[in-house]
């Protein structure tokens, strides 16, 4: 297998590799997805760059929280200020996978993998994309919806930015077994309540039930101005089911995924009433 492997020692070096080799360059974070493809022997990239030594890992607080792209899932699972982010990270794989997989790489995982997008959408995350000519910050929502062919070619995801969390959040993942499995559905919610106990702001993010993780905005809108009660929870669950666009794969049928969106949105919102 003849290939060029680049292991840049800094972001600048990584960006210059991107600039020089552009299209056709495969970028690896922790390699947990790309190495699996290589091992299948059906995929022969000619140019590969690993970001493992580019100095992009670490969690920084500076008015908001910044998580470097190659911060591994073990480290993400220990971030205390964003409980459903750490929970979601802990529920991925086993310890060895979490030592390898990175937050940046996780955001490039095709569904039904890539659980971290769900809590990150609930926390209004932005991602920082850098290229040799500068950097831009876009909402995670917009990033996930961008066509994949635009990525990894001329810019690199270098960090995830999170505003200070407000309100209450909950996360639930359904898999076919308890550990080390992709999601049938993953649900992340965050609600902010006013003094009267009415919801003033809501995020309801869904994973594994569409082409990418997304916010169920109609369900969010329905929750605003309501209290969390049996009716508002049931209505939000129903609307979230309608907003889902699930697929059938080896883990679950589209029908089952949609059904479980209803069950898990309900359970997740009910957690917030306790």
């Amino acid at each position: 297998m003849n290939a060029d492997l680049f292991i840049p020692r800094s972001l600048d070096e990584a960006l210059s590799v991107v600039q020089t080799h552009g299209a056709g360059l495969l970028v690896m974070g922790g390699g947990t997805m790309m190495m699996a493809h290589l091992n299948e022997g059906i995929f022969f990239p000619k140019k590969v760059m690993s970001l493992a030594r580019a100095g992009l890992s670490g969690v920084y607080r500076n008015g908001h929280t910044q998580i470097g792209a190659t911060t591994n899932l073990t480290e993400v699972s220990q971030i205390a200020d964003y409980p459903i982010l750490s929970e979601a990270a802990y529920q991925i794989g086993g310890p060895a996978i979490r030592n390898m997989g990175t937050i940046g790489g996780n955001l490039y995982m095709p569904q039904p993998a890539g659980d971290l997008a769900v809590p990150l959408l609930a926390y209004d995350a932005h991602v920082e994309l850098a290229s040799a000519s500068g950097s831009r910050t876009v909402s995670l929502e917009d990033f996930l919806a961008e066509p994949r062919s635009h990525r990894g070619v001329h810019e690199l995801l270098v960090a995830v930015h999170l505003p200070d969390p407000t309100g209450y959040a909950a996360y639930l993942k359904l898999g076919r077994r308890e550990a080390n499995t992709p999601s049938v559905v993953a649900v992340g919610v965050r609600v902010v309540m006013d003094k009267q106990g009415q919801i003033s702001d809501a995020r309801l993010a869904l994973g594994a039930v569409g082409p990418f993780a997304f916010r169920a905005k109609n369900a969010e809108a329905l929750l605003i101005g309501q209290s969390l009660n049996a009716k508002s929870i049931a209505d939000a669950a129903q609307i979230a089911m309608e907003e889902s666009n699930p697929f059938t794969d080896a883990l679950a049928t589209a029908w089952y995924r949609r059904h479980m969106v209803g069950v898990f949105v309900k359970r997740t919102l009910e957690q917030l009433t306790k």
């Binding site: 292991i7 690896m28 922790g30 390699g31 690993s50 996978i97 030592n99 390898m100």
Partner: peptide, 12 residues
């Protein structure tokens, strides 16, 4: 630290 050697580039 435990890692999966099948998913790790030996170069790393």
């Amino acid at each position: 630290e435990p890692v999966l050697s099948c998913l790790m580039l030996a170069a790393l």
